[in-house]
Nucleic acid binder design. Sequence first.
RNA 1: GCCGGGGUGGUGGAAUGGCAGACACGCAGGACUUAAAAUCCUGUGAUAGCAAUAUCGUGAGGGUUCGACUCCCUCCCUCGGCACCA
Length: 813
Amino acid sequence: MKKYLPKEIESKWQKTWEEEELYSFDVNDKTSRGKYYTLVELPYPSGDLHIGHWFSFVTPDILSRFKRMSGNNVFFPHGFDAFGLPAENAAIKRKIHPQDWTMKNIETMTNQFKTMGTMIDWNYVTITCLPEYYRWNQWIFLKMYEKGLAYRGKTLSNWCETDQTVLANENIENGKCWRCGNEVVQKEVAQWFLKITEYADRLIWPENPGASPERSRRVDWPMSVRVGQNNWIGKKAGINITYKIKGTNETITCFTTRPDTNFGATFIVLAPEQTFVKSILNKNSEVKAYVEKAEKKSELDRMAEGRKKTGVFTGYYAINNLNGREMSIWVSDFVLAGFGTGAVVGVPGHDLRDFEFATQFGIDIIRVVVGKDGDTSAITDKKQVQEKEGTMINSDFLNDLDIHEATKKVMEYIEKKGWGKKTVTYHIRDWSISRQRYWGTPVPMIHCQKCGIVPVPEKDLPIELPYEVDFTPKGKPPLASNEEWVKTTCPKCSGPATRDAETLDTFFDSSWYFYRYVNPGYTNGPFDTQKVKKLLPVDIYFGGAEHTLGHTLYARFFTKFFKDLGLIDFEEFASKRIQHGVVLGPDGNRMSKSKGNVVNPDDMVSQYGADVVRMYLCFMMPYEAIGPWSTEAIEGMYRFINRVWYLYQNIDKSIKPDKKDLFFMHKTIKKVEQDIPEVKTNTAIAGMMEWLNYLSRKEKISEEEYKTFLTILAPFAPHMTEELWRSEMKEKESIHLQPWPQVEEKYLTEDEVNIPVQVNGKVRGVITVSSADLSQDTVVKKATEDEKVKKYLEGKDFKVVYVQGKILNLIVK
RNA sequence: GCCGGGGUGGUGGAAUGGCAGACACGCAGGACUUAAAAUCCUGUGAUAGCAAUAUCGUGAGGGUUCGACUCCCUCCCUCGGCACCA
């Protein structure tokens, strides 16, 4: 038999498959088979394919191939998330235009992707930086503007000095920019926002997805994503209580979720940016100095201070309606202007942060006794409170209630008295989408001196990104430097006007690409609604855990918006979400050029072949895990593939599989077909290895066994199985068009079964009994006759616990 | 601090109430070879023993159960997310 030479056979079959259009997807498929849409997050064209790309794409490919063999019309498209800062930064550094750099990378990476041997249909490719794609970004933006969901706002924003652009909250990691890692500062900038807050309630996952009646389909997303997104949305029900400021006509409103603790409120703290604070700046120099200092503090400065509280007394008092107490009013930067009302009522007996502030400034500490447990979920350490000689007061009318009821009752009481109003707050903010950079979708808006902001008429789309632009960062958008492009006429009054020179956050692009995938050339709208109806929702969406709060949340938001536009009729775009892990370098660290621990997939492919690399990536650890690449362990996979290859020589066409052979064969088919949909390729491969070990121990094997082995191995190792199937075994039709072998349950029952026998829960022997008679009497009889077991029974009486055909436990007193 | 995931041999990991450590790597011994590589065979949780075998063993402690890596309670460690969020 010829040698196993992966290099030769892999490129040969990749070429043949392309010529034969083996993987071409037909959306108009007339057969009755079901559709299956496999989606993997579209990669950024960074330049070179990383082993991480292989890791995240191979398992989806195996699943897709398996689904196809199991009789589904499988859609497995591809694309590139081609806009974004790295292109611009690389271009500045290397003096290449971002577009040229990006398109070249896409070409390189596409060729590298093809060496993986996936069943991706390369006729369906979406590239987000092309006008045919981003014109529909602009279209969607205009629709959102029309519906009041896109608006121009001027607020304190996250600003990255290095990248000279605004960042969304989701793009900040520990106060630093997610791209460059440099400090993010707060800056007042006018920019475009999307009102994702309007969809906050609909974006909240039901506690038990699938149970909610308005969701007709079962939605299976990881708990970490559902809980993470719900926390990020951060819906809280509470009450806004308004307090009179003594000696003025003014009031202060504070939000709280626990008004029952207000009996113990002793002070109020305002954010430096709060309106009442602004009104007294000129009356109080101490407050003024504090506010000015606070404004200069960056996120990092605040973090460096830790929990140490700073603050200043305003000289004013507010009246607590519940007990008539006068509460001193303070200013402190621990109160956030952007959350709630920018004012907090201090309850130091029940809140650790308030306790710290009260201790720092010598404010009274009161502990409230409410409810049948005599306390309201005290946060502060009791001893500490007593040391501060705090007063204990009793709110008599709440004595028989639990905390939850007490909160509710006080809330109603305050509202009835007219002191406050029930309200709901959210942690999620509107999504800032303006970027002051070049390489992105131009915002389709026009600024007219007379008419103000005017949307570009739909017929004028796309507003193309000009090629000639000075894109070195200068603090204003690079597009503004191209006067010819910026100058335009107002669509309303035809007077002189300028184009909006900002570009859209690239997360806008990736929020809807999977709709575009079904017909990337579609020209009558952002996507082909007929085809979308056939293929979506996505059946399984593979991607990274880092997209929990950004991309996947945005994509869900867009989906709900499209539903409201009547373009689609479902709430969730992906029925199932699986998040891949990370392949670390052989030294256990994250791969990086500077550490010199990068595993280059091209090198691995030329050394072992794509099939071995594919299978090793599936076998090394579970898909969701994080772990190091092993230069030794991959050798084991090379051995496995070679053993399968040369096992071909052991075929004896004259023999038929016996009962035991068939048992092993069907057991393995079952194992593999159960594991693949659960994304457990590591154990599926282990199952095939066991079967191979069994087959290798035999002198000769039947053709049926070998062919079945190749068939179930085909999704994992598509090239070598095809070579054996077509070149060696002279089969006409590709192995990848074969149906998945049927599991015959009748072969899975064994003549004899081994039953472990326990005495007092410890295994003392194993008996073999005929599966024809597994009755308790027979098994117990056989067990008591067993020499090893007998020793432990010593003729004593025993109780029997028997699980039919599985285990026998004898309990001796 | 809150939320979520983990903790099993020398290593990656199997087992979701029923023989813990499948499968693989590594290691040790053997076969083949003048020799090496490759390949094949055998062994490989710890302790005691020549051995049969026994005892211990899934982060720690308790509990439920005939039986617990698996379920419950308390705690420790670790990774990830959020965070002066009122």
